[in-house]
Every structure is written in C-alpha cells, then in structure tokens.
Computed example of a mutant assay.
Amino acid sequence: MSEIIDNQRFRQEKLKELIQRLHQGEDAATVKKDFKEHFQYVTGAEIAEMERNLILEGTQVEEIQYLCDIHASIFEGSVQEMHDNVLTVNPLKEFEEHNQELRIYIEENIEHIRTAKPNDLNKVKAHLGERVDRLMMIEEHYAKKENILFPFLEKHGISAPPKVMWGVDNNIRAALRKCKMLIASDDATIEGLKGQFLATVDSILEMADKEDKILFPMLRDVMREEDWKKVAQTLTEEETHEYQDPQADEAVMESGVIPMSLGQLTFAEADALFNTLPMDITFVDAANVVKYVSQGKERIFPRPKTVIGREVKNCHPPQSVHVVEQVVENLRSGKKDHEDFWIHMGPKYVLIRYYAVRKHDEFLGVMEVTMDISDIQALQGEKRLIGE
C-alpha cells in the first residue's frame, strides 16, 4: 500500500513540476518529451488533483486558464478513460454527440476558409456571419456543462478544473461576440475577420477535445449511478420545462399549512405563488449555499436543480466571482441592504437585485431577484380599464 501511495505522490509531484516549467516559459515540446518519458497515461482525476494543488499553492486560476491549451497539448492522447462504461444511464452521450456534430459541421462548412483567398469584404462578412450564428448555438452546450455537470465534480471535491474550464468557455463566448462586432464594423478587413474567426474556431475545437479527453473521463471516474440518473433527469426537465413536484417535510404535511408572518399558506399555494411571481428568485443561505430557486415559466438565467446545494462561488465564472463575493460580504456585514445591476441581453433589459435577508437582525442569506423590465420601461400614460 505504501508503494502505491508513494507512486501516487511521485506522479502528482512530477505532473506539477512539468506544468510549473510551462508556466515559467519553458518550451512546450521539451516539457512534452519529458512527460512522455515518465508517463504512459494520466487520468482525469490526476489532472484535477494537480490543478487543485497548484491553486492551493498560490497559482491564480486565471494563469492556469491562460495556459490551459498548452496543458492539454502536453497530455494529448495520454488521458486514460476509466470505467467506460457499465452505466445503465449515460447522459454524457448527449454531450459527446454534440461535440462530434460540431466537428463535422466545422469540417464541412469552415475548414475551407483556412486556404481560401477571398477579395470581396461583403461576401466574406455574409459567409462568416452565418457560421458565427451557428457556432453561437454552443452556448446551450456550455451552459448545461457549467450548471449541470460541474456541480457533481464539486460535490466530489473537484473544483479547480471546472473553474478553469468555465473561464475558457467565457473567453470563447467573448471571442464569438468579437466576431459579430467585426462583421458589423465598417473598419473590418478580410484578413482581420478571417484571423479572429479561425482563432475562435480553434478554441472551440480545443474545448471539445478537453471535454472528451479530460472532463468526461473525470466525471466517469467519480460519479455514481444515482448521480448519472440525476443528470439525466435534470437534462430532461430543462428540455421539457416539466419539473417533479416538490415534497414537503413531515411537519408541513401533517398540518397542511405553512405559518407565515401574517397569515398562512398551504405548501402547494406557497410553491405556486413563488413560481407565479413575474421574476426569478434565487436564495443563498448564510453559509453561501444555494437553497432555493423559483421555477417560473421563463427564466432569464438557467438554474437547473443541480444548483441546489452548490456554493455560490462555484455558480459563476472566475471572471465575476470577486464581484459576487463583494456583493455578499456587503450585504452580510450590513454595509448595504441591497445591490442593483442592469444589463442588456438581446431584446431584454434585465434588472438584477440582491437583497440581504434578515430575521430579527440575524443574517439568513441573500435573495437574488431578476426580471426583464423592457415592457415596464415602455409604459406610457395611464391604463385604468380592463383590456380586451
């Protein structure tokens, strides 16, 4: 047993040493050669542990994220897929099929652009615009990964790889938006458009490879049968918007009512009431854990059931975690009672409000209220009669 432990410790130290050499600027080909000399393979779990140790020792998530592509190139072809696969439920198939469909689309519709030499800027804009719109559909894939799969890694103590990967996802989102902006710009050039677009495509392909070779094997390594069933159920619910009815605890079931500050509601009434409010509500408790999410007809931000029990810092990409933590601290300390933000999301004008929730001066948590106020902003005059 001690030999196994010593070997695991050696593997971790060697992996960490190799990655630190990359961070210090050493040539990737040299590091990859040394990797091949010491390792026949690495597992997704070993990569996760190595990244976690680097962060614990002071390496910034952003630095790991910045060099993420180089890390992947070092491990290319060496990540061992474990437990592949005796599961009766395999929701990863949806993600893997999407990645394969993405590769086929890029091969058939984009690869020719690398060698093409067009000279008509307007035609290039139209040609690339169609493809950027298609690639932006990857948002649904990334959102499912971040909100449904990542919580299960965190549940098993693996938090570094999700943070790094989410940061890279956000960089891809930003790169796609930049493509859209360049296409709409009067100052764009053919070479500038082509360069930005192909660099973005390469990042998307690299992320698909990281998912297939690192993320999915890592999930297979740590997740249990019941975890996979929860993932499958959540994916179905997110697609159909049909959620399982919640279950009340015994005390509520026996009495049939929930006593409120003024009046009382049955369990069914309370649940329906919150889901009928024209806004999304999320409650994070005093321990910074997500405890409740309303389930209205149309949510502005995705909040699948896997968010319940998740630490709030893990519900946001690395680029915005510091803002969330500052908001929570201001509300917890009493420096502020609420904090407001408003952003444009396509045709929606979204108001996001955070409130400190207290009972007899005891801080219970934070309530996030999100709503589309574009219709409210458009109101004029008065309305005093019932409409037809």
Score class of each variant (00 low, 15 high):
Glu3Tyr: 01
Met1Gln: 06
Glu63Val: 06
Pro162Asn: 11
Gly334Met: 12
Arg177Met: 08
Asp186Gly: 10
Trp342Thr: 15
Glu238Asn: 07
Ser333Leu: 09
Val327Trp: 06
Met279Gly: 04
Ile158Val: 11
Glu94Ala: 15
Glu250Gly: 07
Glu13Tyr: 12
Lys213Glu: 03
Glu311Trp: 02
Phe152Ala: 08
Glu191Arg: 15
Ala160Met: 08
Asp337Trp: 03
Ala116Tyr: 12
Lys305Tyr: 00
Asp340Val: 04
Tyr243Arg: 10
Met218Ala: 15
Arg177Glu: 03
Leu277Gln: 02
Thr282Ala: 02
Phe301Trp: 00
Ala272Gln: 12
Glu101Asp: 09
Thr266Gly: 08
Ser203Gly: 07
Asn119Cys: 14
Val350Pro: 01
Glu3His: 05
Val79Pro: 08
Leu92Arg: 00
Ser294Val: 07
Leu215Arg: 03
Met345Asn: 12
Glu17Thr: 15
Leu15Thr: 02
Tyr349Leu: 09
Arg173Ser: 03
Leu273Arg: 07
Ala378Pro: 06
Ile308Glu: 08
Arg9Thr: 15
Lys36His: 10
His127Arg: 05
Gly129Arg: 00
Glu108Trp: 03
Ser294Tyr: 14
Gln80Asn: 12
Asp133Lys: 03
Glu238Ser: 04
His241Ile: 01
Phe75Val: 01
Leu15Ser: 08
Met345Trp: 13
Gln264Asn: 11
Val350Glu: 04
Lys155Cys: 05
Leu262Ile: 03
Lys230His: 05
Asp249Val: 14
Val284Leu: 09
Tyr41Asn: 01
Val42Glu: 02
Ser374Gln: 06
Val328Arg: 06
Asn90Tyr: 13
Gln264Pro: 14
Phe341Lys: 08
Ala188Gln: 04
Gln24Phe: 01
Asp271Lys: 11
Thr306Ile: 07
Tyr41Ser: 01
Glu76Gly: 07
Glu329Gly: 05
Asn7Val: 14
Leu364Thr: 03
Val328Pro: 00
Ser73Arg: 07
Met1Trp: 06
Asp372Asn: 04
Arg9Cys: 08
Glu238Cys: 10
Glu154Cys: 02
Ala251His: 10
Lys16His: 09
Lys14Gln: 14
Ile74Leu: 11
Val324Asn: 10
Met260Asn: 11
Leu385Tyr: 15
Gln233Pro: 05
Lys305Ser: 04
Ile19Asp: 12
Glu57Ser: 05
Met136Phe: 11
Pro151Phe: 03
Ala270Cys: 07
Leu379Ile: 12
Asn288Thr: 13
Lys178Gly: 06
Met253Gln: 13
Asn99Glu: 01
Pro161Asp: 05
Glu94Met: 10
Ala208Ile: 02
Glu63Ile: 14
Asp212Glu: 09
Gln24Arg: 11
Ala160Tyr: 04
Pro246Thr: 13
Lys16Asp: 09
Gln377Asn: 10
Glu130Lys: 14
Ile343Pro: 13
Glu96Gln: 04
Met207Lys: 07
Asp337Gln: 06
Ala208Gly: 04
Lys213Phe: 05
Tyr355Met: 12
Arg310Leu: 01
Leu262Glu: 05
Met82Gln: 11
Lys117Gln: 15
Val327Ser: 04
Asn330Cys: 15
His83Gln: 03
His98Ile: 12
Ala184Leu: 14
Lys123Val: 11
Glu191Gly: 11
Glu225Ala: 05
Lys229Tyr: 10
